[in-house]
């Protein structure tokens, strides 16, 4: 099994059971989600029962147990973004992509996640697409943005 990546992670974090969350953070960063076989390994190496590893993985929002899409759209649902109309475009983009928050489109292109605040409230509503922040978002602007990404990946797949 490919434990090499995990071994690298454990080298920096250490193998104490109190490092469980930090280890899962790194695993998530490496794989984009928490693969089950890796979690089994984590359980063995940190000597934390597997059920506890899963409990922690389920409890914290930062972790996902399912693979995520190629593009990750994070929509801020914090108070400041809410009063400036975030719910309107969240529903709209979910409708456009045909998924629910936390889900990935069938073609594996987009995952939409929500977050409670990104700390950029003065610029709200804020969304983050693949790490890039977009401020003063509206339903119309977001629609166009998603379409742009869709077209881009269409073109790229045609080129190949």
């Amino acid at each position: 099994m490919h434990t090499e990546k995990l071994d690298n992670i454990l080298e920096t974090t250490g193998k104490s059971s109190s490092e469980l969350i930090e280890v899962l953070q790194e695993v998530q960063k490496t794989y984009n989600y928490l693969p089950e076989d890796i979690l089994r390994n984590v359980s063995e190496k940190l000597e934390v029962p597997l059920i506890e590893v899963f409990r922690v993985a389920n409890f914290y929002k930062a972790f996902t147990l399912k693979p995520r899409g190629e593009h990750i759209l994070t929509v801020c649902m914090g108070t400041a973004c809410h009063v400036r109309g975030a719910p309107k475009f969240l529903d709209e983009v979910l409708g456009q992509l045909g998924i629910k928050p936390g889900e990935t489109t069938e073609d594996g292109e987009f995952t939409v996640e929500t977050v409670n605040c990104l700390g950029a409230c003065a610029l709200g509503p804020v969304v983050v697409l693949d790490g890039k922040y977009y401020d003063h978002m509206t339903a119309g602007k977001l629609r166009v943005l998603i379409q742009k990404y869709r077209n881009k990946s269409c073109k790229e797949s045609k080129k190949q």
Binding site: I21, E22, F59, Y60, K61, A62, F63, N116
Partner: peptide
């Protein structure tokens, strides 16, 4: 430095300390 896991309740003192121990907050 310890990073949280994105759970609001972990701001509460006893939950935060549980989380620091690597447990559910």
């Amino acid at each position: 430095i310890v990073r949280g896991g994105g759970a609001f309740i972990c701001g509460e003192s006893t939950a935060l300390m549980a989380s620091l121990e690597g447990k559910v907050g």
